[in-house]
Amino acid sequence: MKTKILVVASMLLAVVALMAAGDDAPNQGVRFQPVDIFIDSGDVPLGAWQVEFGGGDAVELVGVEGGPAPCWSEAPRYDPAALMQDRVVVAAINTQSELCAGRVGVARLHLRVQGTPAYTIKLIAAGNAEGERIEAEVSVAEGVSE
């Protein structure tokens, strides 16, 4: 394949284990819950990113939403082929002129959850507006269903 890969980020592995609620969780059964994905690109404006999210067998993806930051409000894309292997791979490219730097919420994943899963997140790639790889950190936080 002749494709040039312009963005190959350093593989930052940020494994974040978030134990949901604890023993006194109100509902140990099936529920729907958002999780938010944050990327911190420091001083460099973030132009593109790709992450792999994990939650084990207890989690099913039911929607992908953009983040709260205006520069990432478009719904990211997910990889359907990866989903067939129970992997959640999500990515987005910002083609707007305004880019965000620092720690920004880039996506919200909508999940069907059963039990108390441990969430993991791995940054596959991050790039700047020119498509060059950049250093960044990724994290995930459990959202609240109001």
Partner: peptide, 20 residues
């Protein structure tokens, strides 16, 4: 807010929808 839908096997998608 914009939420992208997920492709699923037919019965699985139906189950997820009905649970939600």
């Amino acid at each position: 807010r914009t939420i992208r839908g997920i492709i699923r096997e037919r019965e699985e998608a139906k189950r997820l929808y009905e649970e939600a």
